[in-house]
């Protein structure tokens, strides 16, 4: 009567091949175009030149990656903590939820371009405004994911627990919180991709160091090769963080794998 545990079909490596091929060929076409057309590297540097600049400026790039990473992590940690704490309060107090939710929605409609300079004006050129901007951008998706996740709990499981004499708190811990985990990870993956971009943008507006500053300075001195070098690093950061959340999700939501979810 036992159903076998479904395994993922195909090796992870084999499935990655099409993606790798398409990325590599895009770079190859770009490289060929730059060489054949003889376009100025001030207009469009070839991928090989960007790579070369990354190696040459590795100290500068690394020194400026660290502050960006710091802002990203601190901001994300702040938004996660607040979103989690608030989600619990909102779950236990539906009235507070109805009162506060519109405010959170409005916070998402504020254009970052306008808000970022103001936040820098209020909080200076240090880490604080970057942390706040990263938190502002990532907070809402996390909060919505958690609140929606709690609401997705199977009512029959809640009825069952109530029939067992469970308290509201026990139901939250044993049923509502675990039910929210798939939603939480969906939100986490979206937020983490916003986080790096938000940190860089906040630096771009005003900072002493960071990838945003590298991009700003390189742009002002007509060095698209260094701009692109910083862009490559920022993409890599996002990809690494994204993979880390995917890995964490696999570990925490192991039960979903046996159902054949992806």
């Amino acid at each position: 009567m036992q159903r076998p545990v479904p395994r993922r079909s195909g090796g992870g490596l084999a499935r990655g091949i099409p993606a790798v091929l398409s990325v590599v060929s895009a770079f190859v076409i770009w490289e060929i175009y730059v060489r054949v057309s003889g376009i100025s590297p001030l207009m469009l540097p070839a991928p090989s030149r960007v790579l070369d600049q990354m190696v040459q400026n590795r100290v500068l790039l690394w020194d400026n990656t660290v502050p960006t990473l710091k802002a990203t992590f601190a901001g994300f940690a702040l938004s996660l903590t607040v979103a989690f704490g608030l989600s619990i309060i909102l779950d236990f107090m539906p009235r507070v939820r109805r009162a506060l939710f519109p405010i959170f929605v409005v916070s998402q409609t504020l254009p970052l371009v306008a808000i970022a300079p103001l936040v820098v004006l209020w909080f200076g050129f240090d880490l604080t405004p970057k942390v706040l901007l990263v938190a502002l951008v990532t907070f809402f998706p996390m909060l919505v994911a958690l609140v929606d996740g709690y609401a997705s709990t199977d009512p029959e499981i809640e009825d069952l627990m109530r029939s067992m004499g469970a308290t509201r708190d026990q139901i939250f811990r044993a049923a509502r919180f675990p039910s929210a985990m798939p939603y939480f990870f969906a939100g986490l993956r979206i937020s983490i991709t916003y986080a790096v971009v938000a940190a860089i943008f906040a630096e771009y507006v005003g900072a002493r160091a960071g990838l945003g500053i590298v991009i700003l300075n390189a742009k002002n001195s007509f060095r698209p090769d260094i701009v692109l070098a910083a862009v490559v690093i920022s993409s890599l950061l996002t990809l690494i963080l994204f993979s880390a959340t995917a890995l964490l999700q696999r570990t925490v939501l192991r039960w979903r794998d046996v159902e054949g979810h992806r």
């Binding site: 499981i157 067992m164 044993a174 049923a175 675990p178 939501l253 039960w255």
Partner: peptide, 23 residues
Amino acid sequence: PQRDALMPWRRIIDNLTLGLEVQ
């Protein structure tokens, strides 16, 4: 309940002990 209402994230043994855990 009508449908089994087993918690999909709990192993069978942990589903079986849910009521005792609540107590």
